[in-house]
Amino acid sequence: MPKAILIDTTRCTACRGCQVGCKEWKNYPAVATKQRGTHQNPPDLGPYNVKLVRFSEHQDGDSVKWLFFPDACRHCLEVPCKSGAELEDSIIVDKETGAVIYTEKTAKENFETIKSSCPYDIPRLDPKTRRIVKCDMCIDRVKKNLLPMCVKSCAMGAMTFGERSDILKIAAERLVAVQKENPKAQLCDMENVNVIYLVAEAPSKYHKFAVADASDAMKGDPGMTRQQMLAGKFAPLRKLAGPAQG
């Protein structure tokens, strides 16, 4: 029975407990950054930043909307990046949890192929090990009945981890509650992913890849639906997307 995470962005305060907690659990080294006129830092996901809170601000009539999006791997049900892999065991799916795991063998994969096959622009290359890196749902913790570190760190109730069936129920209930004040609220790609984002505004306002971006893939085969694309039934055509900033 797969596990899932609901990320309710309407409760996220961008305290970045998840971003830092993830880094600490993984013992990732610090990355040199610059202030570029935004609180979002590092600018993008990276080999030592597999969880990143994205910030974007919008003027909406008289009011300001400041949107936060704690970005990481969606742990897709059908795994497009796996279909882009050459080796059998470089990208594995843990049956018990549904976690998509990149093993050390990803060092032998073509990074560009793997990256472009992800509709959420998640995989990153560790230049030192040549491994491809992303969130592993804290599989080590989960196997020991501990919450993934991002979920554990979140005090706002913005992240809930559990059985997929339970999470789907909770997500549906939260959507109803949030839609009362935010009619545009939606659950992003709920049917296809195990990390489900609840957003109050149009997903593109949060992040270019908040929902699956199949534009490149569909350009290659205009007859393909996004659903098919997500099911991994396409060749990894999507070109490398530039880093999204906010």
Binding site: C15, R16, G17, C18, Q19, V20, G21, E24, W25, L147, M149, K152, S153, C154, A155, M156
Partner: peptide, 25 residues
Amino acid sequence: INVEGDPDYPISAGGLCAKGAALKS
């Protein structure tokens, strides 16, 4: 080797902000 929030603390229920999350390092 690790620091994380205490789920029994009624106020945080185990959560930590960015600063608290950095306590190990």
